[in-house]
Amino acid sequence: MSDWLTDTRDSYDTVAVSYAEHTRELLNGLPHVRAALRLFAEEVDGPVADVGCGPGLVTAHLHALGADVFGVDLSPGMIELARREHPGLRFEVGSMTEPLGDAVAGIVAFWSLIHIPDDEVPTVFKHFREALRPNGLLMIGFHAGDETRLKEQGYGGHPMRVHVHLRQPERVAGWLSEAGFTVEAQWLLGTDGAILFARRG
């Protein structure tokens, strides 16, 4: 496993409980994000993978909207917590840098690509496309910007070591197009966030 992957896994294992507490009510204050999730749930027809699911907040929200969804995360600590908090849903340990395995109708990657280095993103999108059925829908949320930050502490003051990559929507859209996706919509969330909808041809 690459050093950055190991650092990311270990960091989120460390902060899993405090991260879950920090984000538990997060969606309540994000109406535009909830609207994106509702639109995705309405448009997708079949199983959905929530990749980088963390403690399962978005997975559970999509399930409540009627989606047939399961969660995948690099961190065993996060998956253990997600299984405990959402016992009726399926969660498994896995990395988006490897093939997903399941054939799915939709993939959600909400603020989980932010730790993937630039040179690995095309491979991740290749794996996403291979996992999606024809006409499958992909929704990505991420921090918008033009910098990389090293995060060494977070969520209750616990030590972390993760790089957070901020990217312009146009750049992410370009990678998606190169991977064989058609970008259908770009939503800007204030000045520092974006959501992209893309479909496999």
Rank of each mutant, 00 (worst) to 15 (best):
E120Q: 14
I195H: 04
V44K: 02
F181P: 07
V44T: 00
L138S: 04
T148P: 02
R9D: 05
D146E: 15
A179K: 12
G88M: 10
L113T: 13
L26D: 14
P87K: 11
S2R: 14
E147F: 07
S95T: 11
A103N: 05
H115I: 09
A35L: 05
D118Y: 14
A64G: 14
G77D: 04
R200D: 03
L81S: 07
V108M: 10
L196G: 02
E92C: 09
H86F: 09
I140R: 04
G77I: 07
L150W: 05
D7V: 00
E184N: 04
P169D: 09
V33Y: 12
L100T: 01
V48M: 05
E42V: 01
P122S: 12
I116E: 06
R167Q: 10
M160G: 13
D10K: 09
A82F: 10
R149W: 08
V17W: 10
L137Y: 02
P159Y: 08
E184Q: 09
R84E: 15
G157L: 06
A64D: 15
G193T: 04
I114Q: 07
D10C: 02
E25L: 15
S11L: 05
P31I: 13
L176Q: 07
R149D: 08
L81E: 08
V17Q: 14
M1H: 06
G71H: 12
T148Y: 01
